[in-house]
């Protein structure tokens, strides 16, 4: 079944109808009708790799302290969308952003030309698909972020490192070998180390790009538990190929197809009662 633009517009209208006209916020924060405050708003986002348009006019809300999952078949643009949040595309020569990603509560446009990508990355961290710790000691891996921010005293760094390793539920396994090379850890441990590293800059938001696709089931479930723990202090957006994972872990789900947002809503609704046949087909495994 082919998605037509009128269909998308209709869905979007329905979605924004549910989101846009919420109650008047008390503290000046944006809220969604479900009472969740928003951390970010993607507004008519477009993205081009050279001449190819990878993201077509996508708008969606990111709720604060919740997990938003991005799902969809290969090539639908979910990773591309994720990487717009922390300006990772800036590393590629031929890229172009269009539209806005508004970060709340300050209201800055993350992809605005006057915004410093380095500053963005200090506030929005990323965990990658294949664990990529630095070939340094566990301590140095986590301490890298704080060092960039200017912390150089041994005791302060140690405190930060411990905080992050504890938050990533890997402190007990690491505390006796902080000076050992991170490459000696197992895959799952390395990924938790990368999560610890991403926590070091005290980010407001963490982006997970298929964080468990390279891991075994036990490591996967540990990471998922971790994400659920972390969401109370950070906002999380996760791209995943694994729909069961999305169903287990996320509060909101966005289904993308060929660069466009096909459907968005609370995870329960998307998986139990999707409004779009395409979504239903994908979820039941008929394609992708």
């Amino acid at each position: 079944m082919k998605i037509t633009t009128p269909m998308i517009d209709a869905f979007k209208a329905e979605a924004s109808g549910r989101l846009g006209s919420g109650r008047v916020p008390e503290s000046g924060q944006e809220v969604s009708p479900g009472g969740d405050s928003l951390k970010a708003r993607v507004e008519s986002l477009n993205f081009f790799y050279g001449k190819f348009q990878a993201i077509k006019n996508v708008s969606l809300p990111i709720a604060e302290n919740k997990i938003t999952a991005l799902i969809g078949p290969s090539g639908c643009g979910k990773s591309t969308l994720l990487r717009c949040f922390n300006r990772m595309h800036d590393l590629i020569p031929d890229h172009k952003y269009g539209g806005r990603i508004t970060l709340l509560p300050d209201g800055d446009n993350l992809i605005g030309p006057d915004v410093d990508p380095i500053a963005v990355r200090m506030r929005i961290s990323m965990v990658f698909q294949k664990p990529n710790p630095f070939p340094k000691s566990i301590f140095e891996n986590v301490a890298f972020g704080p060092r960039l921010r200017g912390i150089s005293r041994k005791d302060e760094l140690m405190a930060e490192v411990e905080r992050c390793l504890r938050a990533a539920a890997i402190w007990d396994e690491c505390k006796d070998r902080l000076t050992k090379n991170a490459y000696n850890l197992s895959g799952g441990q390395q990924q938790r180390l990368c999560i610890a590293r991403s926590l070091a800059s005290r980010p407001e938001m963490i982006l997970f790009d298929e964080p468990t696709s390279a891991l075994d089931p036990i490591a996967t479930s540990r990471i998922e538990e971790l994400m659920l723990e972390l969401k109370s202090s950070v906002t999380i957006a996760v791209v995943t190929h694994n729909m069961q994972q999305a169903a287990r872990v996320s509060d909101f789900t966005a289904f993308m197809y060929l660069g466009e947002l096909a459907e968005f809503g609370p995870t329960q609704k998307i998986f139990m009662n999707p409004a779009n046949k395409l979504t239903a087909d994908y979820i039941s495994g008929r394609f992708g």
């Binding site: 990772m88 590393l91 990355r121 990658f128 630095f134 921010r149």
Partner: peptide
């Protein structure tokens, strides 16, 4: 992947070159 990790931590290009 190592470069991406460094940039994702908020390093500038010079810092990535220097420390990694």
């Amino acid at each position: 992947a190592i470069r991406e990790a460094s940039y994702a931590c908020g390093a500038t290009r010079l810092q990535t070159v220097r420390y990694h």
